[in-house]
Design a protein around this nucleic acid. Sequence first.
DNA 1: GATGAATGAGACTTCATTCAT
DNA 2: GATGAATGAAGTCTCATTCAT
Lengths: 206, 206, 206, 206
Amino acid sequence: MSTEMAIGRRDRNRIRNRNEILEAAQKEFSKNGYHDTSIQAIAIRADFAVGTLYQLFGTKENLYRELLVDYAEQARVQFADALSTGKTAYERLVNYVRAKGDLFEDRIPLARLILMETMGTGVLFKSGPKPELNLMYDVWHKILADIFEEGIESGEFRPVDAMGAAVALEGMTNQFIYHWQQEPDTFQYDRAVEQIEELFLKALRT
Amino acid sequence: MSTEMAIGRRDRNRIRNRNEILEAAQKEFSKNGYHDTSIQAIAIRADFAVGTLYQLFGTKENLYRELLVDYAEQARVQFADALSTGKTAYERLVNYVRAKGDLFEDRIPLARLILMETMGTGVLFKSGPKPELNLMYDVWHKILADIFEEGIESGEFRPVDAMGAAVALEGMTNQFIYHWQQEPDTFQYDRAVEQIEELFLKALRT
Amino acid sequence: MSTEMAIGRRDRNRIRNRNEILEAAQKEFSKNGYHDTSIQAIAIRADFAVGTLYQLFGTKENLYRELLVDYAEQARVQFADALSTGKTAYERLVNYVRAKGDLFEDRIPLARLILMETMGTGVLFKSGPKPELNLMYDVWHKILADIFEEGIESGEFRPVDAMGAAVALEGMTNQFIYHWQQEPDTFQYDRAVEQIEELFLKALRT
Amino acid sequence: MSTEMAIGRRDRNRIRNRNEILEAAQKEFSKNGYHDTSIQAIAIRADFAVGTLYQLFGTKENLYRELLVDYAEQARVQFADALSTGKTAYERLVNYVRAKGDLFEDRIPLARLILMETMGTGVLFKSGPKPELNLMYDVWHKILADIFEEGIESGEFRPVDAMGAAVALEGMTNQFIYHWQQEPDTFQYDRAVEQIEELFLKALRT
DNA sequence: GATGAATGAGACTTCATTCAT
DNA sequence: GATGAATGAAGTCTCATTCAT
């Protein structure tokens, strides 16, 4: 009835295949990293022929990029949501930290890839600009800085450097997430949230 | 008479060659990362034959490992030094943060490699144990945690989770270093030190 | 009532499609040669699906063959026409040389393909017999030889080896055409015709 | 004793390998043409590993180019020799025609490649300038034209267009060589030489 | 001990061809 | 009849590693 229903079988198939391939790619790339993952391996896991991956994604690098961009978009949406939920800046930031943990929990295998790319050590960073992925670094810093700024202006926070606070918060969450990945049995992310509050956020309040 | 004096021309040569090769390897690996650096490229830059590299290091992976272990040892020494300088835990931690920045400043090209490896996304983390490099992650966390513990026991710091504080501090410094690498013109690491004090360390004091 | 009148819409469509595809194929093959032209590229230019091309032509090689055969037939007709126009053998041969130039002028992009194939270096010559294209080589030599023979028998030409004369004439025209393609700005084919007369044909006359 | 004796074993090996590979490449390329010959096939015939071919020649196209350039140089030398032997321009040209036949007889498999490239339908002509191979087309025309010019100036030949005569002669020889390749049992190149004299060269004389 | 030519497994990518819709 | 997504064999090229000199 709607225009969206006009999406044909062809297109639906295409999208389904695309997603299945991205799913397989995510698992393989996360396991061994970009260079030690072959297109063959992804194709086998996805149960498609190599040619199909190339028809849909063009190059290995592009498949990888699409994977991260897909994920970055999801993240952006969820984080924006978290950051707009809560009365105070403090609450919003806690929600963000929690959402970041949730995202990684849902898609644990992607965690290493994301950390790698956001830390600037990844594949995509080598070749020129990568506007799609800026979301993951610059823009996130900026968005967080805005929340800190808000809190400062409303008198909720001490007058600190908002961008510095944003960088610090990002660093902490990343490191806690990494720590959590390394020792999933003895460390829960819930404790990370608590500690970030305790060690950092509370101290910002006036 | 001592065994050390027994180092002959042979061994001295070997060591000199080893260092020249590691120097070249550092430059090449830092430029393009592990996978996009070939042994032949390193050999050319070092002005040795590939066979010589294989005689001294066995495999490409091992050459890379030795490089990082070398660096990790330097870092360990410098950090241990910084962490034992200063009267209070607070001062020692500030010295550590400063020393970390200095280390990266001295050897900027290695920075990406280190960040990559310490974030767990590097080559060496893939396969099995990597005790030498734990220095770079686990052990550092532990050493920092000990300092926080000291500060807590002496009443200098609030009774927080010491390991949590260590993780948080590592995360912050890494992120500031990364930020600094990205925007070397507008951001000085000195400001990072100040902000880490302002946002984090001061708030720990009783 | 006749079978020819029985050509229905179906068949007319089929022929129209066939021609559109051949047109596109000609452009693509001429641009990049046989091996560097893909069926998909032809399909896109012709605005048909690849499946349609395969339904009509079976294989890539066959599509190519049909293209050349089509062209060869056109050429045969035009050359036969030229060779039967003119009172003397001399005139007929001049007409032929002119017609050959005209043909290449009309369909310049095909020129390289034809030269390639007639020089025996093309795709179709590789595998076994290729009777359709003999038109383009053996048969042409023979037809020309017949004209020379006629001229000799009628006393118009000296008693030379007719086949040798035919081969020589073909070689000259091909080389002039090639020369002309290489330097279209400074060399006109009209001059080629004059020179072939001057250097070769006139000398044959008694 | 001479400096040439200073060529070491290494270099001698390298040159021998190079030649063996070129030999194998010549056979394979001549059999199936550039595109239908794989580096694998050449490597197997030459009894080297693929990597060795790549170490010595860089790319497939370059291996092919070297092959033709090597050959072109041989040809240039032999033709220059033939063209400088003989008292009259007529004799020199006959010597050239004969030398051309000899060259092709010695290295029959290369004939198709050479014709293909000199006719401008080959692989190397697609991508920009190819100065090395100009020897095979432009320069040869020019050199021949100079001989005709000489003959004209000395009064030995009629005052015809020298470049036209050169083009005509090249075309004839090429076509006779091709004809000869096609029917090696019934047609000897000796007859080609005679006929070129009879049909073309003699008629130029005053 | 040093050398570097030789190796060959394996990676990415293309594209002629098929076949279910 | 027409479509074009899917296929997978095959090709080019790289590079870690070896070993005869």
